[in-house]
Design a protein around this nucleic acid. Structure first.
Length: 850
RNA sequence: GCCCGCGUGGUGGAAUGGUAGACACAGGAGACUUAAAAUCUCCAGGCGGAAACGCCGUGCCGGUUCGAGUCCGGCCGCGGGUACCA
């Protein structure tokens, strides 16, 4: 008897796959193509369990598609630009480029032993000049097509470090390194005009049938289409009008104030005129720029002293307030407040003693609004009071529509469809990103770089010992000639948001060496991605940006028609989570520790055997910043890749988060050893050995083929594996003939091959299979072997299970009813009562209702 | 705050509106063994009962249905996103 030695088996078969180049993707007309892609990793330095889970799932699909006769494209690359590389350079010295490429080397070395069916010849990193140079070409084409523009926008500014901070670097309103109170500062920045496509991006969601409904819903809400109206309110001081946007113009009667954003032109004009008001606006500027911070902050305001006329009730004047809760980016940056029918407005009105006036009541009751605003569903009927357009009892939705019509007819306002989606700011004041290929010329202004000068490469000789963007203070890099007039000019020092890098890499994979961003021939053949797999945390931004990019690339001639939605099917896997271990430094800030460094003692978790106690924070997504990561390399070296792969697939449903625990890998290894031993035993049988129960074994086999195939197709990997466990047990106990057992074990190996490809190859070879199992045709379930003659039905009385009957599968309903009523347990439960109704669901259940 | 999910034994989880707890981990008992490991067999939601069996049970409250873990409404808890983390 031989032993299961994964290290040896896995190396051997990986070499065999490489030798035959079976994973190399080549265009071919004789097979249907299948493009499977997992979201590419950020090269943090170590692969973690989330990666193993993600890439193993993709690999199962890729290998299954290969076995079912597809021409598979399954590439891998690196999302290599980003902040952590600069942070590492600041923290430990070194260069972001060296750090990143070193990490890529390490991670590739850790990933390759997993035996993924990847075409490594297509690998690239987004920080390769060959990639980001093409990205710069795309930028120039987008610019020419009017898809990119510049405008002012606010950033988090650290006044001590004199640098722009990412939201993640702002902790409780303070800079993470300096501890200084962060201010908002306005900079001129580059934007993609994604808002122009808002309606289309929303409408097209409906066609994404193979996307999770939750992702489509999240995107729809994010785009946030709303039908409303823009209403100009005339200032009483003759200073013009203030344009307000409202989705509830039907509540106009209840309007009791106007609120404008602190960034609104009205606010800016008043700033400095009055110390109190100036202080208020300055205070608003200290708030984080994040939506969450603004929404959670206490709602505050200040009366500007300005007044506007109510557009309908002309005798009414409304005060104009500045409100810290009004966003300049949404609508017109000004709203009218109707406290009776909006909770936020009501809280605001109660706080500042503003009037609360109903625009409607619920039918049958004129109740006054207290601390809760009256906000019924739009489909509910309400009774409008003294409505200018003559509305009485109707739904809010009808009220809104009628009001918009009335306002438009009387030239009081204009109906508008607006979106919450804002344009995509792509400028970053950082070094480690794709340089924006434009030049600032004193005479010609902002000038696009010439394509022949691409790539505009990052300089290597930079330092991170002082805060700020090293490109800004580089002695010569900025100096260039204006592409238009040739005079000395300065390069743009902003680099691109890393989301740009990941918004088109899937297209680049179809022709990674092309001299242009894409090759139309290759894109036409390989696009779209048939199955995209990645974390749910990317449900909105990455996927929405990629959808925008696909459209923009279509418009600029970089992708063929039909690629506007680049991902035909999407699967969002859950995250791998782990407890977080934390101590605090002398300033009370958290310091995180790796699970490997934690020692569990009777008194709790310690850092090292006698070290300080560690605070255990509940499980969260494994992330480098929280250090709650587990190293899969240990598991691979202890048990082999097949065990690691089997384990991550078997333990929980792929879309759900999984809490990592060390237990379980051992069990997976034991099972694979059992399968190995089984193959060994069958191999040792006499070729002509007869036995009993061939039919039963083959029936179980066909049922397993069916269930595993369905499981793989529906991402039910854990359920598929449960079936494989059961079938293995059946085969282990089987006394069938050698021929039947050999067929069974070879089929078992095939069904396992997407999950444990190395072990499967070995069993296949051991049993004398032809060629590689990876390219052997996928087994088909014989329908005739799946049906049985009899079926066991549970019998319920009033919905509670009381008995079981076994009847012929094709027994007519009336006969099933008779059989159920004849059952002793049913008779006992009925206790003489006569059934009112009997429900027979063929093949499933019988329910007797009394 | 807002948007989107999730919640089932000691644990991970299974279950087209149709027998809740498949499969596995941890646990218990047994076989083999001088012994241990390994392997194999069996038990195992809770309460009551010798057993047959009965009652309860899928975060909480209510509803729809012959029948609800699954659908609907309202809560609670946890997680993801919240536009400069990727």
């Amino acid at each position: 008897m031989t032993r299961y030695t994964p290290a040896e088996i896995e190396a051997r078969w990986q070499a065999a796959w490489a030798r035959d180049e079976i994973f190399k993707a080549v265009r071919s007309a004789d097979k249907p193509k299948y493009y499977v892609l997992e979201m590419f990793p950020y090269p943090s330095g170590r692969i973690h369990m989330g990666h193993v889970r993600n890439y193993t799932m993709g690999d199962v699909i890729a290998r299954y598609k290969l076995a079912t006769g597809h021409n598979v494209l399954h590439p891998m690359g690196w999302d290599a630009f980003g902040m952590p590389a600069e942070n590492a350079a600041m923290a430990i010295g070194g260069h972001p480029k060296d750090w990143t490429y070193g990490n890529i080397e390490d991670m590739r070395d850790q990933m390759k032993p997993l035996g993924l069916s990847i075409d490594w010849s297509r690998e690239f990193a987004t920080c390769d000049p060959e990639y980001y140079g093409q990205q710069q070409a795309l930028f120039l084409d987008f610019l020419e097509a009017g898809l990119v523009y510049r405008k002012n926008a606010q950033v988090n500014w650290d006044p001590v470090d004199m640098t722009v901070l990412a939201n993640e670097q702002v902790i409780d309103g303070k800079g993470w390194r300096s501890g200084a109170e962060v201010e908002r500062r306005e900079l001129t920045q580059w934007f993609f005009k994604i808002s122009d496509m808002a309606g289309e991006l929303k409408d097209a969601l409906e066609g994404l049938e193979n996307w999770p409904a939750k992702v489509r819903l999240m995107q729809e809400n994010w785009i946030g289409e709303s039908r409303g109206i823009e209403i100009p309110f005339e200032r009483t001081d003759g200073g013009g009008t203030i344009l307000c946007y409202s989705t509830r113009p039907d509540t106009m009667r209840g309007a009791s104030f106007i609120a404008v954003s602190p960034d609104h032109p009205v606010s800016k004009a008043l700033e400095g005129s009055n110390p109190e008001l100036t202080a208020f606006i300055e205070d608003c500027r200290k708030m984080d720029t994040t939506e969450a911070a603004m929404e959670k902050a206490e709602k505050k305001g200040i009366d500007t002293g300005l007044r506007v006329k109510h557009p309908v009730y002309e005798s009414v004047e409304l005060p104009v307030w500045i409100g810290n809760f009004v966003l300049m980016d949404y609508g017109t940056g000004a709203v009218f407040g109707c406290p009776a029918h909006d909770q936020r407005d009501l809280d605001f009105a109660r706080k500042y003693d503003l009037p609360v006036r109903n625009a409607f009541y619920m039918p049958g009751g004129e109740t006054e609004v207290g601390t809760e605003a009256l906000v019924p569903a739009k489909t509910e009927k309400v009774v409008y009071i003294d409505h200018f357009a003559g509305l009485g009892e109707t739904t809010s939705q009808d009220g809104i529509d009628a009001t918009i019509d009335y306002f438009e007819a009387n030239d009081l306002g204009k109906g508008q469809t607006k979106y919450r989606l804002r344009d995509w700011g792509l400028s970053r004041q950082r070094y480690w990103g794709c340089p924006i290929p434009v030049v600032h010329c004193d005479d010609c202004g902002v000038v696009p770089e010439k394509k022949e000068n691409l790539p505009i490469e990052l300089p290597y000789d930079v330092s991170f010992d002082v805060p700020g963007n090293p490109l800004d203070r580089h002695p010569t890099w900025r100096d260039t000639a204006c592409p238009t007039c040739g005079k000395p000019a300065k390069r743009e020092t902003d680099t691109m948001d890393t989301f740009v890098d990941s918004s088109w890499y899937f297209a680049r994979f179809t022709a990674p060496d092309a001299e242009t961003p894409t090759s139309m021939e290759d894109a036409a053949y390989w696009m779209n991605v048939d199955q995209y797999i990645g974390g749910i945390e990317h449900a909105i931004l990455h996927l929405l940006y990629s959808r925008f990019f696909a459209r923009a690339m279509r418009i600029t001639g970089h992708l063929p028609q039909g690629t506007e939605e680049p991902f035909d099917a999407l699967f969002t896997q859950g995250m791998v989570t782990h407890e977080i271990y934390m101590t605090r430094d002398e300033r009370g800030r958290p310091v995180y520790h790796l699970p490997d460094d934690i020692h569990w003692t009777e008194s709790g978790a310690r850092l090292g055997a006698d070290g300080p106690m560690v605070e255990v924070v509940p499980s969260a997504k494994m992330s480098k910043s929280k250090k709650n990561v587990v190293d899969p390399v240990n598991i691979i070296s202890a048990y082999g890749a097949d065990t690691a792969r089997w384990f991550v697939l078997s333990d929980s449903p792929p879309e759900r988060d999984v809490e990592w625990t060390a237990a379980g890998a051992e069990a997976a290894f034991k099972h694979l050893t059992r399968v190995w031993n089984l193959c060994d035993r069958i191999g040792a049988m006499g070729k002509d050995a007869k036995g009993e129960g061939d039919e039963d074994l083959l029936r179980a086999m066909h049922s397993c083929i069916h269930d595993v195939t369905m499981g793989i197709e529906s991402f039910g990997f854990n359920a598929a594996i449960a079936k494989l466990y059961a079938f293995t047990a059946t085969l282990q106990k089987s006394k069938a003939s050698h021929a039947a057992q050999r067929e069974a074990v070879m089929t078992l190996a095939q069904l396992m091959s997407p999950m444990t490809p190395h072990l499967a190859e070995d069993i296949w070879a051991h049993q004398g299979g032809q060629g590689l199992i990876a390219t052997a045709p996928w087994p088909k379930a014989d329908q005739a072997m799946l049906v049985s003659d009899t079926v066991t039905l549970p019998v319920q009385v009033n919905g509670k299970r009381r008995a079981e009957i076994t009847v012929p599968t094709d027994l007519p309903k009336e006969e099933v009813e008779k059989a159920a009523l004849a059952d002793q347990a049913v008779i006992r439960t009925l206790d003489g009562a006569s059934p009112k109704k009997i429900i027979v669901v063929p093949g499933r259940i019988v329910n007797v209702v009394v």
